[in-house]
Computed example of a mutant assay.
Amino acid sequence: MIERRPVLDFVGHLVLLCGAALVAFPLYIAFVASTQSAEQAAQAPLSLIPGTQLIHNYVQVFVSGSSGHVDVGSIGRMMWVSLVSALGIAFGKIAISMLSAFALVYFRFRGRSVVFWLIFLTLMLPIEVRITPTYQVVSDLGMLNSYAGLTIPLIASATATFLFRQFFLTVPEELAEAARIDGAGPMRFFKDVLWPLSRTNLVALFVIMFIYGWNQYLWPLLATTDQSMYPIGVGIKRLISGGDSAVEWNVVMATLILAMLPPGLVVVFMQKWFVKGLVDSDK
């Protein structure tokens, strides 16, 4: 039996509260700055009391996105571009990874292990390493400044393929044999058996891949030259590109708060499934 010790419980909760405060304090500072005028946000030290410009600042960045020094276009438009790109990357990675893992596990063909290890070796080739040939291919195909150019080069995922492969290997072979006896083809078995069993894994990977796609900066910086196709990461960088004397930190902080909302909401609403997908399965 585990004995309850009030002192240890108090110390444990105190440590957790201190950790939460350390994480939340920078977010609070960003929120306070986003509610102040440009002059108030530039003062040192920054006031910890929220200002009166909250609605004005957020409406300004969401609708126009411009400050007195830099015009980056509508932040609302940039968030839409980031949302479409993140969803395209997440769904694309999941679809390709599930189908490739399904083929590697349930189809017998020569060189299957070699194909798997070739896919696995691509983990050592991130986008930063292959960015020059990738950019050349995307440019030659005329996909610059397009949603296809922002998503297609990033949808292949060796990590997701590996995770789905390991999960499919744990599915009892008897299920596949029963499906074959019932006359179900490969795609019917995939749709009616493997897909329902993979729901928690799908949600966990969706959360990870959505945040990965939302936070992209380097590839969109190269693949977009049209302001209307800038994602939110590029927009934030342009807001602070004028130097400290030209940056309106209230506008920047309001943009940062808005940029954190979609991935934060995804994590909050899918937290239960996300944790379950990492530690459990529905088999």
Rank of each mutant, 00 (worst) to 15 (best):
L261F: 12
V84G: 03
V207S: 10
V268A: 13
L265W: 03
V81D: 01
E39M: 03
F168V: 00
W249Q: 04
L99G: 04
V114N: 01
T161Y: 07
Q53W: 03
L87A: 14
L123T: 08
K283R: 10
V70I: 15
V23D: 01
V114D: 01
G142K: 07
Q36F: 01
N201S: 13
S146E: 10
A158Y: 02
S228C: 00
R238G: 02
P262E: 06
V247A: 06
L144D: 06
N215S: 14
W273I: 00
W249K: 06
G68F: 03
V70M: 12
V207H: 06
F107H: 12
T224H: 07
I257D: 04
E248S: 09
A20H: 11
Q227K: 13
V70D: 06
V84C: 08
M1K: 08
W249V: 01
L87K: 05
K237A: 13
M270Q: 07
L256G: 07
E248Q: 15
A33Q: 06
L48D: 02
Q271M: 06
V137M: 15
M209L: 15
F162S: 04
L99T: 12
F190D: 11
T35V: 05
L258E: 03
R130C: 03
Y212E: 15
L46S: 03
I211T: 15
I119A: 11
S37H: 04
V247R: 04
A179Q: 05
P172M: 01
V59R: 11
P262Q: 07
A86Y: 01
T200K: 10
V252E: 03
E177D: 14
D192T: 15
D226W: 04
W195S: 11
P186M: 06
G142P: 09
V138P: 00
P172T: 04
G76A: 12
Y217E: 04
L125S: 03
T255W: 02
D244G: 05
G76Q: 07
V23N: 02
I94A: 12
E177L: 11
T225N: 14
E248H: 11
F25L: 13
V7L: 15
V266W: 00
D244E: 10
S34G: 06
A90P: 09
S113R: 10
G142M: 08
Q271S: 10
I75N: 12
A160H: 03
V63E: 02
L175N: 05
D182T: 08
E174D: 14
L121V: 08
R108A: 12
F25S: 05
M229F: 13
F31A: 10
I127V: 13
E173D: 09
I181S: 05
S146M: 08
L197G: 07
K276N: 13
P6Y: 11
N57D: 01
F107Y: 13
I208A: 11
S34P: 01
V23W: 11
G65W: 07
